[in-house]
């Protein structure tokens, strides 16, 4: 579950007045929060009809586009930061989406439920069942999460593509988790970029 603590962590990584694109922005509450706290100029991408209405209620610029195909129209490096919150695990073209985030944005922020959380491990290892929890509330047959991964997996993913991790925060129930994050953390937040973008932005990242 995304909480205000997670919002605050994300906000702390975003410069005042930045241009932000939130992929799969849901009801737009993160963008609304970033608008209030950081004065960002934000756009959300969402494809769910009800979520779009909530975005409009929240005063958020929302674009109804299918994430898997619709980013092609967004110009290269036209955003400071592209956020993908709690959605990466549901994407079909995971690699392509992350690459596209760093094409349209200078930096990317990704948040995801940590499949390596100890309770998930125990449910599989001891219970022999796929884990169900507050952060992974679905049964195996109705989950939208088709690419489950752990904090360690994501770090390996970034390392293999030479992505530079700029910040990492891990939370458990809205409280920051510094100790053994891959075992004790339920939600991971990463800010990262690639070498080309880092050079373009003058290495200040």
């Amino acid at each position: 579950m995304i909480t205000r603590a997670d919002f605050a962590a994300i906000a702390s990584w975003i410069p005042e007045g930045a241009r932000v694109l939130d992929l799969g922005c849901g009801d737009g509450s993160l963008l609304a929060y970033l608008g209030e706290t950081r004065g960002v100029s934000g756009y959300g991408i969402e494809n769910d009809e009800r979520a779009i209405l909530r975005c409009i209620e929240n005063g958020v610029n929302v674009l109804q586009v299918n994430l898997e195909s619709g980013m092609a129209e967004i110009a290269d490096q036209s955003f400071d930061i592209v956020i993908l919150s709690q959605t990466l695990q549901a994407m079909k073209r995971t690699e392509a989406v992350v690459a596209d985030m760093l094409r349209v944005g200078r930096e990317a922020i990704v948040t995801f439920p940590n499949f390596g959380y100890w309770k998930h491990r125990t449910q599989i290892a001891l219970g022999g069942r796929m884990p169900v929890s507050d952060d992974l509330p679905y049964q195996w047959y109705n989950t939208p999460n088709i690419h489950l991964f752990t904090i360690a997996d994501f770090e390996a993913f970034c390392a293999a593509r030479h992505y530079q991790v700029l910040n990492r925060s891990v939370f458990t129930g809205g409280v920051e988790q510094k100790l053994l994050p891959n075992l004790l953390g339920t939600l991971a937040l990463y800010r990262f970029t690639n070498a080309a973008n880092a050079i373009r932005s003058g290495g200040t990242a």
Partner: peptide
């Protein structure tokens, strides 16, 4: 978007 205008789009 290229001109950084406020826009909402629904299909």
């Amino acid at each position: 978007l290229d001109e950084k205008k406020a826009v909402t789009y629904t299909e």
